[in-house]
Amino acid sequence: MAAPSLITRVRAGGLFLTLLALGPGVAFASATTGRSAEGYFLRMQKMLFTVNYRGIIVFQHNTMLKAIAITHGEARFGGWERISTLNGPPRELLKNGHRLELLFEGHPIRLMHVLAHYTGLPQNWVGFGGHFSHALLREYRFFLLPKLGRVADHSARIILIRPQDRFRYGYRLWLDARNGFPLRSDLLNSRGQVIEQMMFVTVRWYPKGQWHERPPDVPPVARSRKVAILIPQCQFADLPRGFRIVEDTTALVPGPVRHILLSDGLASVSVFIHPVRPKAATLVGMARMGPVTAFGKDLGPFSLIAIGEVPPRTVRWIVDQARLKIKP
């Protein structure tokens, strides 16, 4: 096979561009397992839902470097997680099913009290995030690199997920060669440059019989049935290819906000619609925080803000194509 031998000779920096030139439809299966890149990806997603683990992640974006301890227990509704930062200001994020709380230096953050009023935390996306969707193959190309990597002292298969257009980012994943667990993730822009990196430095998996960790005690979400549905419905004349609405909820944050979640199966964008308040500032134009971009625009008496880990052009397009059904 000529193509894999070509890839092995390419340095990491130029790998993405080289694969861009190889054209669509190229995918490599492992010579030892016979599993394709899609197969490894599917295995990874299943693994994330069915395993208990504890580890330390390093997270790097530009000059920001964070070390994060993570404990994950398998349970219903996405399981539970306890995440704490090991450098910088001490923070702890507790998640148990749909309940979520952020502790800053041991104290709950007001942001989370705001979030506690949010009534629309959706179920897991069965058939979307939990399982491999073949629709993904239209928007991304999956490549299995022939060379094995090594992360956290584990042998790792490397798969490259290349977007088919410039409306989403690419990924390079290092998956444990034995169980498919994601050990490292690089987020890549359209030029194949790394814009964000996460990597386990230590990780240990526990079978059910040997797992004695207790889930965190997270206060229940204060549900309110008095959410005034004052926000009109929103339709999109045209969306970037592959994106579709997967959730449409209304919440109090603390004022009424319509939250529309769009995704292509990997990338996701949320559109928030809230009434324009005379003295309250809102985003108009583009803003970004690392790879997270946001674009805001006023549409009559309402303000639209799209936010997601996608290129700026994507959030801009989505907001541009939004049409509100405002009743006269």
């Binding site: 749909h98 629309g120 995030g129």
Partner: peptide
């Protein structure tokens, strides 16, 4: 939060 952990990390 709305991704409910289904998105990796």
């Amino acid at each position: 939060a709305s991704l409910s952990g289904s998105q990796m990390m």
